[in-house]
Structure formats: structure tokens, C-alpha cells
Design a protein around this nucleic acid. Structure first.
Length: 111
DNA sequence: CTACTGACCTAAT
DNA sequence: GATTAGGCCAGTA
């Protein structure tokens, strides 16, 4: 299980600044199809600051952290400092979605 | 042990 | 656009 978490976080670490990825996308890239929820669990549990968790949004391009939660605003400001302009709590996936080629991704993961 | 929760997703209304 | 239904499954209570 912990290995799944590390696999997920490893992929998240590869998201470049200025781009965003979706939970489902990360799950797929991590070899865990249909486990989008596990991605959110992993991010929630993650404490390592090297992991750009804020670059992960839901499939609608919206921040999934409840607005009531403090993390919501934090994610927004972190995205802005990445140069990702968000209207409200939504980002334009057409413009910012991370689209890595599978080759380069596997290379980055040392596979 | 069972029951509920959730920073989710897709497809179909 | 918005809602619903079903799938998914590690945490938490």
C-alpha cells in the first residue's frame, strides 16, 4: 500500500510548474486505473514539501479541497505563484493540463 | 467486525 | 450548464 502511495507521489513530483494534472490522470499514470480516490488519500497523507500536491485538481479543473478548509486558498495561491491563472477556484484545463508522453514519463521514473 | 466517509471519475440523463 | 447512479477502496469511527 505504501508502495502505491510512493508511486503516486512519484508521479505528482513530475508535474511541471505552470501545469496541472487531474486525480484520475495521476492514478492512471501511476498504474492504478480507476483509483482517483486513492490519489486524494495519498496527497492528504503526504507531508513531503517536495511534492507539488497543489498541481492536482479534479476532472472539472476545480480545486477539490472544500472551500471551508484552509488548504483551499493555499492551493489557489500556490497555483498562482506557479503562473497558473485561476478564475475563482477553476483553472482552464485546455490551457494548463499536463500532457506528458508515456516515454518521457517512464524515463523520468527510471523505468 | 460492520458502516460510513471522501481533496474522485465516467456516463447518462 | 446541473444531477444522478454506479464504480472504487483506503481511512476512520
Amino acid at each position: 500500500m505504501n508502495s502505491k502511495f510512493r508511486q503516486i507521489l512519484a508521479v505528482v513530483k513530475l508535474i511541471p510548474a505552470g501545469k496541472v494534472a487531474t486525480y484520475g490522470q495521476i492514478a492512471d499514470l501511476a498504474g492504478l486505473p480507476r483509483r482517483a480516490r486513492l490519489v486524494s488519500t495519498a496527497l492528504k497523507a503526504n507531508d513531503c514539501p517536495l511534492v507539488p500536491w497543489h498541481r492536482v485538481v479534479n476532472s472539472q479543473g476545480k480545486i477539490s479541497i472544500p472551500a471551508a478548509d484552509a488548504g483551499h486558498q493555499l492551493q489557489l495561491s500556490l497555483l498562482r505563484s506557479d503562473g497558473v491563472m485561476a478564475s475563482g477556484s477553476r483553472v482552464d484545463l485546455k490551457a494548463y493540463l499536463w500532457q506528458p508522453s508515456l516515454d518521457t514519463l517512464l524515463f523520468e521514473l527510471n523505468f
